[in-house]
Design a binder for these strands. Sequence first.
RNA 1: GGGCAGGUGGCAGAGCGGUUAUGCGCGGGACUGCAGAUCCCGUCAACUCGGGUUCGAAUCCCGACCUGCCCUCCA
Length: 449
Amino acid sequence: MKIYDTLRGEKVDFKPVHEGRVGIYVCGPTTYDYAHVGHARVAIMFDIFRRFLEYTGYDVVYVSNITDIDDKIINKAKERGEEPIKMAHRYAEEYMKDMKSLRVREPNIVPRATRHIDEIIKLVQTLVEKGYAYQSGGDVYFSVSKFKDYGKLSHRSIEEMIAGARVEVSDKKREPLDFALWKAAKPGEPSWPSPWGSGRPGWHIECSAMSMNYLGSTIDIHGGGADLIFPHHENEIAQSEAATGKVFANYWMHVGLVRFEKEKMSKSLGNVFYVRELLKKYRPEVIRIMFINSHYRKPFDFSLKNLEDSKIILEKIWSAYTDFKKGKKCNYCDLCHEYEEKIISALKDDFNTRKAMMHYLQFISEAREKNLGVCAAEFMEKMDNILDILPKEFGKSMENELIDLIVEIRNKLRKERKYDLSDWIRNSLAKMGIKVEDEAQRTKWIRIR
RNA sequence: GGGCAGGUGGCAGAGCGGUUAUGCGCGGGACUGCAGAUCCCGUCAACUCGGGUUCGAAUCCCGACCUGCCCUCCA
């Protein structure tokens, strides 16, 4: 398997630290607002990546954190007169709900910064003891110039960064690029006791502490949005490797940013689309397909057209799936083996989901051509362990039975040539997201919303 | 100013040295009460520009131009 590693800047062979096992840490959100499409892309892509690793036989430990203490949280809470940690936890719950709606499987561990203050303090202490960090007032800063590899992830030298100006000046810092590991508490802010007085963690330290706590000092894969490369991940490397003397992460995977009308989608630009808003109009599978249909590293241009296109693809897939499911029995499926091989090898090449999807669609049309039945549906179900885009509501429910009944009534009307009424029923169902399709012998319907 | 990622047909988006993906769209046909799904046929002089390497480049090298991101909080 090959993965593009941001640090080395090229596709490289993947070898886990321990044979057969993979430890992944993905930076999750700072929870001071609802999840938007950008969060969704990272979560969905790593969800599918993780399922893929499991599919190929790896034992995966997937950790994705929630940062629940931070300047942004404090500021927003202040604005709204709320208690910061409480607010952060409320948004964290909402985030988890949104991800669940998107069929993102919950990571094995979802650690929160405020529950790992001890580990954070210990890590800061180690850095102070080793001379990489210094106390200044109630703050503790990391001394960037002491870490010779600083800039290796974002491919920049310290000089370049200083030349780039725009560095925050502070009389508390010895050098402008130094960053806070621990911040002294201001009145009214959440704080914890520490050797440097009461305070709270800086932004980057929590991920280092939690990653090492759950996955060890060297993990296999560390991931997140591309906007975290600098400074977040760069700083994580510096503080972690300074503390342990070991490589922090063997592979760095970054998901390209989501853009809207050629601009980055971000809260500061005010052009965000919230997951929950999208889910009112589109099924989660549509959103999953939309992202599967792009390469994870490339910037993604979000648009309504893109969503609509994905919806059409989903309908195509569902339609084929229901046809196969009702088709004839077929035990052996050479085509399935052939396409499984194609799909998996596409994913093994730097997780090329776009290419995998192309094979998946090609499989559908070839399976139709060859008149395959149940075994084709079974193959799609097998692949669904990775993709999770097939309909899951086949079971009996009052709702399904009622729809069956309505469809049956409509067919009786059609036999009586009462087409006005039967067309009206079909249109009405369509408005509810139920697509009715008449075939020679029977009528099928699928819920597309 | 520096770093990174890109610039492919009407659109989205693969391919990364030789066989012109795929999906959507568009035109025509079969099927159908109609629609849809499906199938068949067709369609659009596609590879930002300029050099170079090569028997051969969208694919490799050099140089321009353009776009986005990062260098301040952001997934």
